[in-house]
Design a protein around this nucleic acid. Structure first.
Lengths: 114, 114
DNA sequence: GCATAATATGTAGAAGATCGAGGTAACTTC
DNA sequence: GAAGTTACCTCGATCTTCTACATATTATGC
């Protein structure tokens, strides 16, 4: 059984920014890397990937240049802008705050808090 | 500065199911409880809350009865159905798997994993 | 008696994100 | 020359969330 995972809204942007922060990389490779690192928990369909990249580029968080890949093909390499780096930090902090809060809630027991 | 938090899609259902699992409770109180326990990180606007409750009820995950609150007012008390309990477990497991994966990604360093 | 706030429910409409399905093209391997 | 992989892209359906609005009851203050 495949680990069907459906990223919640907003999460994809955070992950893309994070991967791009590790060094210039093209879209297709971002999706592969996410899938590898997460052991298939995170799977990004192309219909989500490319709109997200364009969205981030339009917002000035990513910048792109066409370059040659290692295999000698043209691809669009994305890198984080200064603004993108700031955004990444903000979103990562929100993510941590939120997951911490949700974690607390999920661990509640009857007759628990206050 | 308020901890503006905007729950990602799907998360609200999970949290509602979890709170309802602790015992019958009405909608307004669910929102209050979430906010209290999370120290204001999770804030549920009514325009999100009630549609979510109806959604969950229609899917057969919650069941509702009108009862009197402690303050003597009529309110709709929700409780988890058997199906809802199963769904809660599934969603909680997904949530853990996902946050774990995202956590790994957010901790990546250049020249890191594979 | 009247205004305000808190409790408690609900709807309508706009805005955004994800995703399945489709399309293009180049390069590699058999 | 057919198939598979890499690499880009768009469109439309679908679902959530959120802002704003609407309603009714109870409690508090003046």
């Amino acid at each position: 059984m495949p680990a069907k995972s459906d990223l919640p809204q907003g999460t994809l942007d955070l992950l893309i920014l994070k991967i791009a922060a590790l060094g210039p990389i093209h879209g297709y490779a971002i999706a592969q890397r996410l899938q590898q690192v997460s052991r298939d928990v995170v799977q990004v369909p192309q219909g989500s990937l490319y709109p997200a990249l364009h969205r981030l580029e339009n917002r000035g968080l990513l910048a792109a240049d066409w370059k040659e890949t290692e295999t000698g093909r043209e691809a669009k390499f994305y890198r984080l802008t200064r603004k993108g780096r700031a955004q990444l930090e903000t979103e990562a902090a929100s993510w941590r705050r939120l997951t911490e809060a949700v974690g607390i809630i999920l661990r509640l027991r009857e007759g628990g808090a206050e």
